Lab assay of single mutants.
Amino acid sequence: KNAAQIVDEALNQGITLFVADNRLQYETSRDNIPEELLNEWKYYRQDLIDFLQQLD
């Protein structure tokens, strides 16, 4: 998997990933985040941060 796929997957589930103060953050109206997504975000944290910062 790559960062773009993970960001896309999150968006499809109503979750927006973004970077604030060099930390990976998310916004969602969901009550909870599936644990497998959280684990994936932790595992790919630096890739996601790098990818999202390139988009800014």
Rank of each mutant, 00 (worst) to 15 (best):
K1I: 04
K1Y: 04
N2D: 11
N2E: 10
N2Y: 08
A3V: 10
A3F: 04
A3G: 04
A4N: 06
A4K: 13
A4Y: 08
A4L: 07
Q5I: 07
Q5W: 06
Q5A: 07
Q5K: 08
I6Y: 02
I6M: 07
I6A: 00
I6T: 02
V7P: 00
V7L: 07
V7G: 00
V7A: 03
V7M: 06
D8Y: 15
D8Q: 15
D8N: 14
D8S: 15
E9V: 05
A10G: 03
A10L: 03
A10N: 02
L11E: 06
L11N: 09
L11F: 12
L11T: 09
L11R: 15
N12K: 15
N12G: 12
N12Q: 14
Q13F: 10
Q13I: 10
G14H: 06
I15Q: 00
I15F: 09
I15A: 03
I15D: 00
I15Y: 09
I15G: 00
I15V: 10
I15T: 02
T16Q: 09
T16C: 09
T16M: 11
T16P: 02
T16W: 12
T16A: 08
L17F: 05
L17G: 01
L17W: 01
F18G: 05
F18R: 05
F18T: 11
A20S: 13
A20C: 11
A20G: 07
D21K: 05
D21Q: 07
D21E: 08
D21C: 09
D21G: 08
N22K: 07
N22D: 12
N22T: 05
N22V: 03
N22C: 07
R23I: 15
R23Q: 15
R23T: 15
R23V: 15
L24Y: 01
L24T: 01
L24C: 03
L24F: 04
Q25N: 08
Q25G: 08
Q25Y: 15
Q25C: 15
Y26D: 00
Y26M: 05
Y26K: 01
Y26C: 05
Y26N: 02
E27I: 14
E27F: 13
E27Q: 13
E27K: 15
E27N: 12
E27D: 11
E27G: 06
T28S: 11
T28N: 04
T28F: 04
T28I: 03
S29Y: 11
S29H: 12
S29L: 10
R30A: 10
R30E: 08
R30T: 08
R30V: 09
R30M: 12
D31F: 08
D31S: 06
D31R: 02
D31L: 10
D31Y: 07
D31Q: 09
D31N: 09
N32S: 14
N32K: 12
N32D: 14
I33Q: 01
I33T: 03
I33V: 10
I33Y: 02
I33W: 03
P34E: 06
P34V: 05
P34T: 11
P34Q: 05
P34D: 07
P34N: 07
E35G: 08
E35W: 08
E35Y: 08
E35K: 09
E35L: 11
E36H: 11
E36I: 10
E36G: 09
E36P: 07
L37M: 12
L37N: 03
L37K: 03
L38C: 06
L38I: 12
L38Q: 07
N39F: 10
N39E: 13
N39D: 12
N39R: 12
E40F: 04
E40A: 06
E40D: 13
W41F: 11
W41I: 12
W41T: 02
W41H: 03
K42G: 09
K42P: 02
K42N: 15
K42Y: 14
K42D: 15
Y43L: 15
Y43V: 13
Y43G: 05
Y44Q: 03
Y44D: 01
Y44N: 06
R45E: 15
R45S: 14
R45Q: 15
Q46M: 07
Q46N: 11
Q46P: 04
Q46C: 06
L48Q: 00
L48E: 00
L48P: 00
L48I: 13
L48D: 00
L48V: 05
I49A: 02
I49F: 07
I49S: 02
D50F: 11
D50I: 10
D50R: 13
D50W: 09
D50A: 13
F51M: 04
F51D: 00
F51C: 02
L52D: 00
L52P: 00
L52Y: 03
L52G: 00
L52Q: 00
Q53R: 11
Q53V: 12
Q54P: 10
Q54K: 14
L55S: 12
L55G: 11
L55Q: 14
L55K: 14
L55D: 11
L55I: 13
D56A: 13
D56S: 14
